[in-house]
Simulated assay, not measured.
Amino acid sequence: MSAIDIAPDSPVFSDVRGKVVILTGGATGIGAATVRLLNEHGAIVSFLDVNRAVGEELAAELGDNVHFFHGSVTTWEDQLKVFEWTVERYGRVDIVLANAGIDEVVEDAFADNFDESGKLQAPTLIVLDVTLRGVIFTVKLALSYFRRLKIRGSIVATGSAASYLDTPGIPVYNGAKHGVIGLVRSLRDSLKEEGLIRANVVAPSFTATSFTKNLIHFWKREGLPINEPVEVARAILFLAVNPDYHGKSLYVAAGTYTELEGSILATQEQWLGKQNTAWVNLRKAKNLKMGKPEDNV
């Protein structure tokens, strides 16, 4: 694994000056810290969130280069309007940050709930819809606008430690965050072939936000690492502007940064086997040459 040094005053942050950024889930927590950091370094930011009051307050505080849009990432039209307005206003979008997500406290998908007749009800799967389906919408829009505008764009998706770990108690969130890393991995080679767009993941461990306020006392008691939102925001900004990073993932724990994907790829023969790795690489090469999805059956 590769440790990365991202200082609070990293010179790479200056590269965001004048860039047009779209971010989802920007009213609170990691998203709000990222909006603030982008604004501090001279970016133009449009952000979407369901929390109207807090979103409007943040945009008013930060000034004319920050624009708030009220809506949900689960609604295509809400996300589309952010891209349409931003491109109409500024003529471009350079960076897209798919950050919105919610955790399992809103619904226990595996708890039994019954209707009035005693029939078992289906879970809403709102955690999956926001945390993965919403990210897919955001990435779809980013790719479409980057390609049509012929922009060397950058996408950063907010994953989680749960993108890699078998975190107990949050199975749907865990599945969704595994999906986020799977999405970016699946785009890694094809986007590299295109040569215009980069996509990366930030994977923070426990972060002090409104989502974790009921658990933070336990983390502190046990001496476990806790991120401040701005520490995760630095990783997001670093990935967004650093041209050396594509198809990577930064794990963030107590303000330390570790790149995970390079080591996973480098050890593929160890965990998949030499012959299987050769077959996988051959299949990927053929599919990239054909320019169409593979048949995984």
Rank of each mutant, 00 (worst) to 15 (best):
G169S: 00
G262C: 09
G182V: 10
K220A: 12
E222R: 13
K177V: 07
V16K: 00
T258A: 13
I136A: 12
F69V: 06
D115R: 08
A162W: 05
E228A: 07
A176R: 04
L141A: 10
K192R: 06
D78T: 01
S205D: 08
A240V: 04
S72E: 09
K284R: 09
H246C: 11
V21L: 02
G31R: 00
V184C: 05
D295F: 12
G63T: 06
E104L: 08
G101C: 09
A199C: 10
N287A: 07
F83V: 07
T207D: 02
R148D: 13
I226N: 03
S205R: 06
I181C: 09
A53Y: 09
G223E: 10
D108A: 13
V35T: 01
P204Q: 03
V93N: 04
E261S: 14
W279D: 06
E77Q: 13
R198V: 01
G134R: 03
V50L: 14
I170K: 03
L48V: 01
F69Q: 01
A162R: 02
N214E: 12
D166S: 14
A176Y: 01
G134W: 06
G55D: 02
N296L: 14
R283T: 14
G71P: 03
E56C: 05
M1S: 12
S163E: 02
F47C: 07
A7C: 06
K248D: 09
G223R: 07
G195D: 14
V297T: 13
E57Q: 12
E231G: 03
L58E: 08
K292R: 14
V45L: 06
F137Y: 13
N39W: 00
T24R: 04
L272G: 06
M290V: 05
A162N: 02
K286E: 12
I264N: 05
L128P: 11
E104S: 10
Q275V: 11
L191A: 11
T256M: 03
A285C: 05
R17G: 14
A278T: 11
L215A: 07
D129Y: 15
F218H: 09
L120Q: 15
V201F: 05
L187F: 09
E194D: 15
I151L: 15
E261T: 07
N99H: 10
G247L: 04
L260P: 02
V87R: 08
I151W: 08
L120V: 15
G63K: 01
S144D: 15
D244V: 04
A162D: 01
G223C: 15
S210D: 08
K140L: 13
V230G: 01
I151T: 14
S263L: 11
V156L: 08
V50R: 13
T75E: 15
L282W: 11
N281H: 06
D112L: 13
V172L: 11
D166A: 15
N276A: 15
A109D: 11
T75I: 15
I170S: 05
V20S: 07
N39K: 00
T258V: 15
W279Q: 07
T256C: 07
A233G: 10
I197W: 12
K119Y: 14
T258N: 11
I264Q: 07
